[in-house]
């Protein structure tokens, strides 16, 4: 059935209910459409214009028939409303004891803050078979948190909190994480030249949810996150981790690392330790303290020639150290 209706895989407890409703509506629509078109085609053929055959005058209509097709559909419609609303209420009321994750939408990335204070950007660990509540807000414009595999969606609005909850029913694989889309139009950088990359505009504002076993999530909450697994064998774990953050947290959308001009932010190659001019006069040495400040509070000292367009990123100290290590390594090249 599902391959026929083209719905995405069912990954949450809501999905079967939603899909049942979808398929019910689908077959109801097919039946109604076929009936209406069949009657229409039959009449058009049967009563086609022929010489000598006049149309029969309509007369005064048939009130019983009119009332029937006015009010009988109400029964079906009432059923549709009831079923749709029943599932909607379930989706709106989270159970007690959910695992809470704060979500911040910003142009054009998703930030997930777990209860241990660790923030992940554009990816998040989610425990399987556990009710998870997302407490969401936006730091700039409207976004919408849309997970097709879970059949959930809710706008992320600046100035207020909205919530979503779900219970994932299966583990995801690294090759096929559960994808989060932004469903509310949120624009693109003007004059953007790298619109094909992740996290540069509305259509690439995505995140990956990694559905992991409950014990693994519990461990993560207790012990926190370190460098990603792929950096375990790296020569310099910190440089590798910094590069990973550069690629996954949206830095690469604006910052080039090839030493050439272009991009919406300063090129990272050869910038560390240099004296750089600031927007509005003055200069500063790009040392550890400055890099940290410009990640956490980018509007404080904007590099000359660039706009104040970078949103603040909530990275932990170890992560910032990794990014700095990565930048330092670029100087060596």
């Amino acid at each position: 059935m599902n391959q026929f209706s083209q719905l995405p895989p069912q990954m949450s407890t809501f999905a079967p209910d939603v899909d049942w409703m979808y398929l019910f509506l689908f077959w109801l629509s097919v039946a109604s459409f076929v009936a209406i078109v069949a009657v229409m085609v039959y009449f058009v053929f049967k009563y086609r214009r022929r010489p000598g055959v006049e149309a029969v005058p309509t007369g005064h209509g048939n009130t019983a028939l009119e009332l029937a097709w006015t009010f009988l559909p109400l029964i079906v419609l009432a059923f549709l409303f009831h079923e749709g609303f029943r599932v909607y209420v379930q989706e709106s009321v989270p159970p007690e004891n959910t695992v809470d994750i704060h979500v911040t939408g910003k142009q054009w990335s998703w930030e997930f803050t777990h209860s241990n204070g660790i923030t992940e950007t554009n990816e998040a660990k989610i425990p399987v078979h556990t009710p998870v509540r997302l407490i969401m807000s936006s730091s700039d414009v409207l976004h919408s948190f849309f997970v097709p595999d879970f059949r959930i969606k809710r706008d992320v609005v600046p100035g207020m909190y909205t919530t979503l909850w779900f219970e994932a029913t299966a583990l995801s694989t690294p090759e096929r994480p559960v994808r989060v889309f932004c469903a509310e139009y949120c624009g693109a950088l003007q004059g953007s030249t790298n619109g094909n990359d992740r996290n540069t505009n509305h259509s690439t504002m995505m995140a990956d949810l990694h559905i992991i076993p409950q014990e693994e999530y519990a461990t993560f909450l207790r012990e926190g996150g370190g460098p990603p697994a792929e950096c375990a064998d790296a020569v310099d774990v910190n440089v590798c981790w910094g590069q990973y953050i550069y690629a996954h947290n949206g830095c690469s959308a604006c910052h080039e690392i090839n030493g050439e001009a272009g991009g919406h932010g300063p090129n990272w190659m050869g910038v560390f330790g240099e004296e750089i001019a600031l927007e509005g006069g003055g200069s500063v040495t790009a040392d550890d303290a400055y890099i940290k400040r410009s990640i956490l509070d980018p509007s404080a000292d904007v590099v000359s020639g660039f706009g104040n367009i970078m949103p603040p990123y909530r990275l932990r100290d170890q992560e910032i150290d990794a990014v700095i290590a990565f930048m330092r390594s670029l100087n060596a090249q």
Binding site: F14, D17, V18, M21, Y22, L25, L28, S29, S32, F33, I36, V37, L80, F81, E83, G84, F85, R86, V87, Y88, E91, S144, F146, P148, R151, I152, K153, A183, E184
Partner: peptide, 21 residues
């Protein structure tokens, strides 16, 4: 008719949540 019937998918809350936007 198709336009109207697919409107039912969007008026029904549970399916609309998935299909919205």
């Amino acid at each position: 008719t198709i336009g109207g019937l697919t409107g039912l998918f969007l008026g029904t809350l549970s399916t609309d949540i998935h299909l919205h936007d």
